[in-house]
Design a protein around this nucleic acid. Structure first.
Length: 564
RNA sequence: UGGGGAAUAGUGUAACGGUAGCACGAGUGACUCUGAAUCACUUACUCCAGGUUCGAAUCCUGGUUCCCCAGCCA
């Protein structure tokens, strides 16, 4: 079966299904689930969402919407020692920003603690669970090794009555943290460690961000997750590869309980070059101040990317492009940037900005005069219209657009050469003024009044067009240029910690940037293309006196390749 | 030296016994009032060895390599 999910551009070609969608399609075709299919995205609120989560979000919500099902946003909040409400808020915001809708189903595993407790009692009564007094160290020792079976806990054969009593007292807080656990009674000789009497509950006298001090015991992932899926009548429980070994246990709990049994399907998590993706590592970057926070624009977090200027459309297209598979792969960051530019090119209005200004004086232009010239807002979108840009005798151009001794391949401004000032005039460089150290501080030009608007009536051509900003009306701005956070494709490479591969030049702040006046008072997060430079967005640090722009991504640049 | 997974151009992903295709990247050229975008072309792939078959990336056998698992984390 193939489906066509509407917003794909490849016309009549039905999209091929990835292996997860294939399973869902087959299940529907075979009538396995008489009602609509149901998926869920189950984050633990112990960190911010990142681009890897976006892959999972797009998979789960995407499948639900393509197959006429539903997708719940469910917090897997079973470990109060690591979870916080701040994370819940950010996750809700990020999923929403990505454009997905969970309807009324904003759910919490902690709401099911009562039901889970009852089911644990049921297993105890069936003789399939017991209270164990072994310490964490002892439990590890009893578990055995890959080649040797584990040993049975001396507490494995307590009576049902004693287990029920002890378990109730665990719940009531009569025992210290770690003193006892509830374990499933399965098979200490199983080659799969997860089946060697896994812990179902541990004692934790910790305050939970939602249930406060109501519970002294908290369920472990393996016990809790399938129950959560079952309660919500999830049909396809999609998770990452490392849970493949856990599937027999997932199935065992649901079968022993005889309750709704959803199918667990595992896919490979996303890896991206030049970035780390584990929450532990991202947390370290935040806590040890390698970055300014979870939403630092260099972070692969959804909030960081949003602040950097990514559109949710670009992220969703990326997730669609990379596909879904069962083996470890690492996506080239260039593909993410391609998806970004593809969207931004269509949607971002163009504007002129000079990041590294040098003054140009047009000697034959009338002193004290200013005129308005018409500029196109977005050549990729005619409906974006035009705007007026002021021009006068003194302007700024990019320092990189001038060279005194230019190589043959350099066709920007150089003494004696005529170039076009975008939407303005042809100008010819007549000379430069330098300071004592030989740095160019001012460039002198003459202009051709006949070329107003940027075209020459005599049909003469210029080799290049450069951008500029009128000196008198320029807005001063700060611009932040971001590079890769790490210097290595795989930040784990090398013998040291991954933080040793941090790129010291991942942030460059430019304080003397000049923007055309059209940009005055622009909205937070609004996205622009600075012509010939890249895509930029307004940062939250902007003030009315000084706007701050983030460079989302540069334009593709064959010139720097030519320079080699 | 136990168990569970997986291998297709540089990267990612299709092909479901019948022409190994697509995207990104890289390269070349065209066009251009953004050295952008756009367009055209080029480049390069089935982990290995056997077998079944008219025909194998696909099925079988045996190997190789990589990933995951011994938290009272998820």
């Amino acid at each position: 079966m193939t489906i066509n999910n509407g917003n794909n551009s490849s016309n009549d070609n039905a999209e091929r299904l990835d292996f997860v969608r294939q399973i869902v399609a087959d299940d529907i075709a075979g009538g396995k689930w008489p009602k609509a299919i149901a998926t869920r995205f189950p984050p633990e609120p112990n960190g911010y969402l990142h681009i890897g989560h976006a892959k999972s979000i797009c998979l789960n919500f995407g499948i639900a919407s393509e197959f006429g099902g539903t997708c719940n946003l469910r917090f897997d909040d079973t470990n109060p020692t690591k979870e916080e409400d701040e994370y819940v808020k950010s996750i809700v915001e990020d999923v929403k920003w990505l454009g997905w809708d969970w309807g009324k189903n904003l759910l919490f595993a902690s709401d099911y603690f009562g039901q889970m407790y009852d089911w644990a009692i049921k297993l105890i009564k069936k003789g399939k669970a017991y209270v164990c007094d072994l310490s964490a160290d002892e439990t590890r020792a009893y578990r055995g090794t890959p080649t040797e079976a584990g040993k049975m806990s001396p507490f494995r054969n307590r009576s049902v009555e004693e287990n029920i009593d002890l378990f109730a007292r665990m719940k009531n807080g009569e025992f210290a943290d770690g003193a006892k656990t509830l374990k499933a009674k399965i098979d200490m000789a199983s080659p799969n460690f997860n089946m060697r009497d896994p812990v179902m509950y541990r004692i934790l006298h910790a305050s939970h961000h939602r249930t406060s001090d109501q519970w002294c015991i908290y369920p472990m992932y393996d016990w809790a997750h399938g129950l959560e899926d079952s309660i919500e009548k999830i049909t396809h429980s999609i998770c990452t590869l490392e849970f493949e070994n856990h599937r027999p246990l997932y199935d065992w709990f649901l079968d022993e309980l005889g309750i709704h049994h959803s199918q667990q399907i595992e896919f490979a998590r996303l890896n991206l070059t030049y970035t780390v993706m584990s929450k532990r590592k991202l947390l370290k970057l935040v806590q040890e101040n390698y970055v300014s926070g979870w939403d630092d624009p260099r972070m692969p977090t959804i909030s960081g990317m949003r602040r950097r200027g990514y559109s949710s459309e670009a992220i969703r297209n990326f997730c669609k492009t990379i596909g879904v598979n069962k083996f470890k792969s690492t996506i080239d960051l260039a593909l993410l940037e391609h998806c970004l530019r593809e969207d931004l090119n269509k949607t971002s209005p163009r504007v002129m900005a000079v990041l590294n200004p040098v003054k140009v004086v047009i000697d034959n232009y009338p002193q004290g005069e200013t005129e308005m010239l018409v500029a196109v807002n977005n050549p990729a979108d005619e409906s974006a219209g035009t705007r007026e840009v002021p021009f006068s005798r003194e302007i700024y151009i990019e320092r990189d657009d001038f060279m005194e001794d230019a190589p043959k391949k350099f066709y920007r401004l150089t003494p004696g050469r005529e170039v076009r000032l975008r939407y303005a005039y042809f100008v010819t460089c007549t000379g430069v003024i330098k300071d004592d150290d030989g740095n160019v501080v001012e460039i002198h030009c003459i202009y051709d009044p006949e070329t107003r608007g940027g075209d020459s009536p005599d049909g003469r051509k210029v080799k290049s067009t450069i951008h500029w900003v009128c000196a008198e009306n320029a807005i001063d701005a700060e611009v932040r240029l971001y590079g890769n956070l790490f210097t290595k494709e795989n930040p784990e490479d090398g013998e040291g910690e991954f933080t040793e591969n941090l790129n010291p030049d991942s942030l460059k702040v430019l304080n003397n940037c000049k923007l055309e006046p059209y940009l005055k008072g622009t909205d937070m997060l609004s996205r622009w293309q600075f012509e010939r430079l890249g895509y930029f967005c307004v940062d939250a640090d902007s003030t009315s006196e000084k706007p701050v722009f983030n460079r989302t991504v540069s334009l593709r640049d064959t010139w720097t390749k030519v320079k080699k």
